[in-house]
């Protein structure tokens, strides 16, 4: 219900409505293609750069917008928090839900893009739902942690966009993992997004899968989620007083 509300509200009084959900990833893809693909000539594992970068952007945008939405969900809806009782977990979860809907839309566009380049994905696509679930779980975990922190320390609100920007470049979105020297790659794998983005690419583009990185990400996701939920529950009682 909250997801539905957020989505309806977002495009009220806009002319183009839901088109905006698609504009952002497409525009980002175009810019990245221009800057990193054409100007910086970053390698793209033998795949056309737009296709390559969009496959990375899909999970990345899901993750970053989910984290951002979730972390702001509580303070943006302080009036609900202090006046109505309902499970507080719903608010950040709705934030992630909204991002999932956006993901679906931009995935539709991606299918068009793949068709254009004549690279329709194979059976690998079947691996996508569990991968998306893993990404969403990681995002929810991080979002919950940040959300309960934001309630108490408004500083976090200012840190989140910044954090997301750094995180983007620490994740192999605009560059392939292969660009990183072999002996540094373990460091990159500490970031669960590395495994997730890699797995998304291999599912969509049929690239070789880095099983190690994916395993690491799959292990981190439930841990982060559990930590987020645990911390959220612990802080929950004070939200209405503090927010």
């Amino acid at each position: 219900m909250l997801v539905w509300r957020d989505i309806t509200v977002r495009y009220k009084q806009t002319v183009m409505g839901a088109v905006w959900a698609v504009v952002q990833p497409v525009a980002t893809m175009l810019i990245f293609t221009l800057v990193f693909g054409r100007l910086a000539r970053l390698p793209s594992d033998g795949v056309p750069y737009p296709v390559f970068v969009y496959a990375g952007l899909l999970p990345w945008l899901l993750f970053s917008s989910a984290v951002t939405h979730a972390s702001l969900s509580l303070i943006n809806q302080a009036h609900l928090l202090t006046k109505v009782y309902f499970p507080r977990l719903f608010l950040p979860a709705a934030g992630v839900g909204v991002s999932l809907v956006d993901f679906t839309l931009s995935f539709g566009v991606y299918c068009g893009l793949l068709a254009w380049y004549d690279r329709l994905p194979g059976a690998g696509v079947l691996a996508l739902p569990p991968l998306v679930a893993l990404t969403a779980a990681t995002a929810l975990g991080v979002g919950l942690l940040l959300a309960s922190l934001t309630v108490q320390y408004r500083d976090v609100k200012h840190v989140v966009p910044f954090l997301m920007q750094i995180w983007l470049f620490l994740s192999p979105v605009v560059y392939p993992v292969t660009l990183v020297p072999e002996h540094w790659r373990w460091l990159l794998n500490l970031n669960p997004l590395t495994g997730l983005i890699g797995a998304h690419r291999s599912a969509l583009l049929g690239l070789p899968l880095d099983a190690g990185a994916l395993t690491a990400a799959a292990a981190v996701a439930p841990a982060v989620l559990a930590l987020g939920v645990w911390n959220f529950r612990r802080m929950e009682r004070r939200f209405a007083d503090v927010v």
């Binding site: 219900m1 909250l2 509300r5 309806t8 509200v9 009220k12 009084q13 009036h79 609900l80 006046k83 109505v84 009782y85 309902f86």
Partner: peptide, 29 residues
């Protein structure tokens, strides 16, 4: 518990009356 602690909390200004009835109902369980 049905609580009405303040006027129209849980209403979203952008939504219509109809949508808000459903939203508010959902919030109240």
């Amino acid at each position: 518990v049905g609580s009405l602690l303040e006027v129209g909390t849980g209403f979203h200004p952008e939504l219509t009356g109809r949508e808000n009835i459903f939203l508010n109902g959902a919030l109240l369980g």
